[in-house]
């Protein structure tokens, strides 16, 4: 039994044109037994940063609170909101602190980064469970359906998608990937982050 497959769950993030999307399934399981179809794995870290935490459910809760603490400390000390790239390094170092007794989480993050000109640049990143960062230009995936997500995303994704098209691409990728994964599924939610709004949609999925 792998601890990474104990509760199941998957997350994906994609880059679009001046927008990003991040999506996850809603299943919480106890190995092959489904427990809940309302288990959120994506959390807002700021107005423009969202963090997905697939992996061991108990660590999802712990890390969510851990990041809330560290983010508050950062905001108080710096007197400004954190930028996505900085946040990615915060995630990385938080996980690497536990290098030899890790949290069983593979975080995925998506956000909009402020450029010197004042515009916003899409940003996505993911790490492994000990904080090795992966800054991708297209999409990042994690969780029990990661191989499936890679396959579908590689086939569906294209550069410079508008928010609505990015939503569709991200949702289709997730839905079709988790339908082939026994440990993921049971509904999904998708966040699309644009410069002036965040669209959250909860999706129905196969319940088998």
């Amino acid at each position: 039994m792998s601890i990474m497959e104990y509760n199941g769950g998957s997350v994906i993030a994609m880059v679009g044109k001046e927008c990003v999307a991040i999506a996850s399934d809603l299943r919480l399981g106890n190995q092959s037994l489904g427990i809940s179809s309302h288990f959120q794995k994506i959390f807002p870290m700021s107005d423009r940063i969202y963090l997905g935490l697939p992996g061991l459910a108990t660590d999802v809760t712990t890390l969510k609170e851990q990041f809330r603490l560290r983010l508050n400390m950062y905001t108080i000390k710096e007197e400004r909101e954190i930028e996505p790239e900085t946040f990615a390094h915060l995630v990385s170092s938080t996980l690497y602190e536990r290098r030899f007794g890790p949290y069983f989480i593979e975080p995925v993050m998506a956000g909009l980064q402020k450029t010197p000109s004042g515009a916003y640049k899409p940003f996505i990143a993911a790490t492994d469970l000990i904080g090795c960062l992966n800054f991708a230009k297209d999409f990042v995936v994690a969780g029990t359906a990661s191989t499936k997500l890679f396959g579908v995303a590689e086939g569906l994704w294209e550069p410079d998608l508008e928010p609505e098209d990015l939503f569709e691409t991200c949702a289709q990728t997730l839905l079709n990937a988790v339908d082939r994964d026994a440990y993921s599924g049971w509904g999904a939610e998708v966040y699309v982050v644009t410069k002036d709004k965040v669209i959250k949609r909860t999706l129905k999925g196969r319940m088998d």
Binding site: F150, G151, N176
Partner: peptide
């Protein structure tokens, strides 16, 4: 080897 990558894509398409 890559069936888990391709099959869900085929389901969709």
């Amino acid at each position: 080897a890559a069936s888990s990558l391709v099959q869900p894509f085929l389901d969709n398409q």
